[in-house]
Amino acid sequence: MRGVTRRLRYPAALLPPVWHALPWRPLAAAGALGWLPVAAARPLSGGTGDTALGLSLLRLAALVAGVGLAFLLDDPARRTTEAVPVRRPVRAGLRLALVAPPLAAWWTAALLLLPAGSRPPSGAVSLEAAGIAGTALALAAASVRLRAEPCPGTGAARGLLALTAAVLLLPDRWSPLVSLQDANWTAAHGWWAAILVVAALVWAVCVPEPLTGHRLLAGRAVRSPCGTSGPSRRS
C-alpha cells in the first residue's frame, strides 16, 4: 500500500505544474472555433432538421478540436523536463487526463448545440471524433519520439490536415466519411474504431522516452545546449 501511495505521490505533486504547462491557448482557440460551425447549424438549416448538415458540421468541429489537441504535447521546456525523475508516459498521460474532462464536456456541448432535428446518431459521430482526436495525439507523440521535437504541435496539426485532405480525395467507396444513408455506415464505423485503436497503439509506442534499444524508434538523442542532460543516452 505504501508503495502505491509513494508511486502516486509524484504524479499528484506534478498536477499543478502540468496544469500550468498545458498549451491552453491553442486548446481554447480550437474549442471556440470548433463551436462556431455547430452554432451556425441553426441559421444555416433554417430550423428544419438536416442531419446530413449536422453530421458535416460535427465532423468539422471534431477536426478543429483535433488540430487543437495536436498541440497537447507542446513543451517548450522539454530539454529540461527530460531530466525529471517522472517519466514521459506519466507526464503525457497527466496532460491527457487533465484535458479529457473539459474535452468531453466540450463535445457534449457541441452535440447539444445542434438542433435535435439535425443531430446524427451521437455514438457513431462521437466515435469518429475520438478517431480524429486519437490521430492528432498519435501524430504529436510520434513527432516527439521520432524527431525529438520540443513543440510537435504545428507539425502534427499539418499532418492531421494533410491526412484529412487525403481522406477527402479518396474515392467515395473507400472513404470513412460516409453519409447517413450509406449502406457502408456500420462498416465505416468499424474502420473508425480501427483508426482509434491504431492511434492508441502509436501513442503507447511513441510516448515512452527512448533509452536504448530499437534503432528505428530510438530517435535522435535530445542534446541540451548547456550540457546538463546527464549521462549520454547512447552507450
Binding site: A30, L33, P37, T154
Partner: peptide
C-alpha cells in the same frame, strides 16, 4: 505570430470557402 493560428484558420477557411458562402 503563433504556431497554432495557421492550422486552425485553415480549417476555418475551408469551411468558409465551401459551406458558409454557398449556404
Amino acid at each position: 505570430p503563433s504556431a497554432f493560428a495557421g492550422p486552425l484558420l485553415a480549417v476555418a477557411l475551408y469551411v468558409a470557402a465551401t459551406y458558409v458562402l454557398d449556404l
